[in-house]
């Protein structure tokens, strides 16, 4: 049922396949990097075991996990384990590392999904209005938020927000999960940076679209401002915006590490930091690869959306 390569669908498939292979290479590169960094820069037993482990324990660990074998044999075994999803046990929780990671990953996924939905919606509306009236209220609002996002540390915003809203005003809980109120502060803190970046791209892209000939035609025909902005111009201005949304969704994880740690949110970012500080290396490895896989899948989706939206890529 594969369409012939000269049909539009065939060309699109080819495009997506090419991009998928490129991201797959990145994924493999990451696995290789993690493996060799963890094996070549010293004794893996020292990385995996707690600091207070004795020499016999380390020796036993090395024999148990075949760390005395040639490096290539070790790499083959490592890749085999990774493909079958076997990351070993979590030292802290005495459960399979992958289970621990997937559990935490669901929390982060929800946090990222809600934040990115809000960011995208808000950035499109505010950015379009900013492009429509240069120097107006929305234009200034978006530049202020962009500057704040690019200059204020997110952990500092989180701390100040806790002092103001949780401690002094006592409106919102300081940390943890349990009710909808727990989600408000983390989402607000995560919101600022991607919004500041995406809104500028929307604005720039919309300024280009609004000055194009077909928008002038629409205006000459007497179409109202609302439909001109959100129907005529926006559709064509969306392509660069989608790319940026993809980039920002991936780097949202940067923010998630910080925000989850501060607000005690049980996501994969907090898990990774906790595991690192308590030397639970199996969990760190699993978390890295699960995250990388998620980003890989998301990039694939972005490419698909791109191909669907832009007929020039399809043909």
């Amino acid at each position: 049922m594969i369409p012939p390569p000269d049909s539009p669908e065939g060309a699109m498939l080819k495009f997506v396949r090419k991009r998928a292979v490129a991201s797959l290479i990145s994924l493999v590169g990451l696995i290789v990097m993690v493996f060799f960094l963890s094996r070549l820069t010293g004794d893996p037993a020292a990385l995996f075991l707690p600091v207070e482990a004795s020499a016999e324990m380390k020796q036993q660990f090395r024999e148990l996990h075949g760390l005395n074998d040639p490096l290539l044999v070790q790499f083959g075994r490592y890749v085999g384990d990774v493909i079958t999803g076997d990351f070993g046990e979590s030292l802290r929780k005495a459960r399979p590392a992958l289970d621990v990671v997937l559990e935490a990953f669901v929390w982060t996924l929800w946090l990222a999904l809600i934040t990115m939905t809000l960011v995208t919606g808000a950035a499109i509306v505010v950015g379009s209005l900013a492009a429509f009236r240069a120097g107006g209220f929305f234009d200034r609002l978006s530049s202020v938020i962009s500057l704040v996002g690019a200059s204020v540390p997110d952990f500092w915003i989180a701390i100040v927000a806790i002092v103001v809203f949780s401690v002094n005003l006592a409106w919102l809980p300081t940390s943890g999960t349990g009710s909808l109120l727990h989600w408000i502060l983390p989402i607000c803190v995560l919101f600022i940076r991607p919004f500041g970046i995406i809104v500028q791209v929307v604005r720039g892209s919309m300024i280009g679209a609004l000055s194009s000939a077909y928008v002038k035609t629409a205006r000459a025909k007497g179409v109202k401002s609302g439909p001109i902005i959100f129907v005529h111009a926006l559709r064509n201005a969306m392509l660069p915006v989608i790319t940026v949304i993809g980039d920002q969704a991936a780097s949202l994880l940067n923010g998630a590490v910080i925000v989850e740690t501060i607000f005690g949110f049980p996501g994969v970012g907090k898990l990774m930091i906790d595991s690192i500080l308590q030397r639970d290396f199996n969990v760190v490895l699993a978390a890295i690869l699960v995250t990388a896989l998620a980003i890989f899948l998301m990039n694939l989706l972005i490419d698909l959306a791109y191909a669907l939206l832009d007929p020039r890529i399809r043909h």
């Binding site: 490129a22 991201s23 990145s26 990451l30 991936a250 994880l253 995250t291």
Partner: peptide, 16 residues
């Protein structure tokens, strides 16, 4: 491709 490998992963996590 090398640049893609670095870019495809959140920078803070690589650093961590």
């Amino acid at each position: 491709r090398l640049a893609d490998v670095i870019m495809s992963f959140p920078s803070l996590l690589i650093a961590v």
